[in-house]
Design a protein around this nucleic acid. Structure first.
Lengths: 211, 211
DNA sequence: AACTTGATGATATGTCCGTACCATAATGGT
DNA sequence: ACCATTATGGTACGGACATATCATCAAGTT
């Protein structure tokens, strides 16, 4: 066995470079040569580790998604304790909004991948939906808890609560977009999210306001 | 003068082809050859009318933005009448959400341009903000009307109302994203927006809910 | 010490794309 | 009838990029 090297570390070094390149100049700037130069290695090496360009991009995508998931897991899963629903949702907000430079950069990269996936095969588009679907369940469960419903079975949940969960996540996606585009500052986005929580916790399930 | 041709029509024929190509396969598939083939003209002709590739893309972008603005103008500006605020905001929802196939396709194209602009120079990124900034004013004005505030001057508006306006637009952006990604159907997105209107018209300005 | 094998470098190749250049058909004014 | 100008087609050139090929270095093993 000659010259053994930590493959995982090398791969991470390269996908990190790819993340920087994509965040700075977009997906189509992520050429083999640009990524290799950014990582300080040769083009051949990138090829060696990821084979295809698809391989490189897939690994980079997974890296940033995993980082996002790790942040979410770190913030949300306080072990043993059961935070009040509003705090739990505040945790979701804090985990998902791009509140610091690192997450902002990741959000740009994710947006690039997202846009690319829209014009891909149905399989790629389907992969975009797994995270939102899971999150809707998490959010709806918290809203159920807050509104005194127990843990309703599948399909038994109040329609308005489901809509509120979708509303919550769609708003977070929109706020992320606003922050990344530079239309809102992170604190403003946070304040808007807090305002949404005000609305959600003010009205009970099934009670629409009079027109 | 030889063989005069309607330039506007030819340009529209070509930008329409570009819109289809981008909507189907993404921005980087919008090559001269692909667009020319889709439009049924020669590559040279596309070059003749738009010179640069940047010219072609800029014209295409403007075409879809203009289409969007036209839809907004057509739906929103009922002349003379002054609809109740909630109906006015419903009009904004109906104008902005991708409720039919045409608008869905346009939304995909816009998302592609949006993602590309994120990793461009500051000027391109600034251009993304003009539409949202104007819309925030429109929405906030309706909320002021609904809440009995007159037409407050610049900066005098209630902070919560401003946040609600941002909330409204961010949610619409997020819902658009959800529909385009295939996570929500158009009717579901509409229902979620309606639910948000419930929340917005239930609470008055400055009245956060108790935690 | 030699050899095997994993890791890395340099470079060639074929393809696609943007753009420039050359050519020509059509048409309306003189 | 001719000519200038507009509109359009064909094609060539140069560059960038993904990928493949050849070559080399390093380090354990025997």
């Amino acid at each position: 066995m000659p010259r053994l090297v930590d493959h995982a570390e090398r791969r991470e070094q390269i996908t990190d470079a790819a993340r920087r390149v994509i965040g700075r100049a977009g997906l189509d700037a992520a050429t083999f040569q640009a990524v290799a130069a950014e990582a300080g290695v040769s083009v051949r090496l990138v090829q060696y580790y990821f084979g295809n360009k698809d391989g490189l991009l897939a690994a980079t995508h997974r890296a940033v998604v995993d980082a996002s998931a790790a942040r979410f897991g770190a913030g949300g899963a306080a072990p043993g304790t059961l935070p009040p629903p509003r705090d739990a949702l505040r945790g979701v907000v804090a985990a998902l909004l791009p509140l610091d430079a690192q997450r902002r950069a990741d959000a740009v990269v994710l947006a690039a991948f997202h846009a690319a996936a829209l014009t891909r095969d149905a399989a790629a588009r389907e992969a975009l939906l797994t995270a939102p679907r899971a999150l809707v369940e998490v959010v709806a469960a918290q809203l159920d808890r807050a509104r005194g419903a127990g843990t309703p079975g599948r399909g038994e949940r109040d329609v308005e609560t489901s809509r509120d969960a979708e509303l919550f996540l769609a708003t977070l996606a929109g706020l992320t977009q606003s922050v990344v585009a530079g239309h809102l500052e992170a604190e403003q986005a946070l304040a808007v999210a807090e305002r949404l929580l005000d609305h959600l916790f003010a009205s009970q399930a099934g009670g629409p306001a009079p027109t």
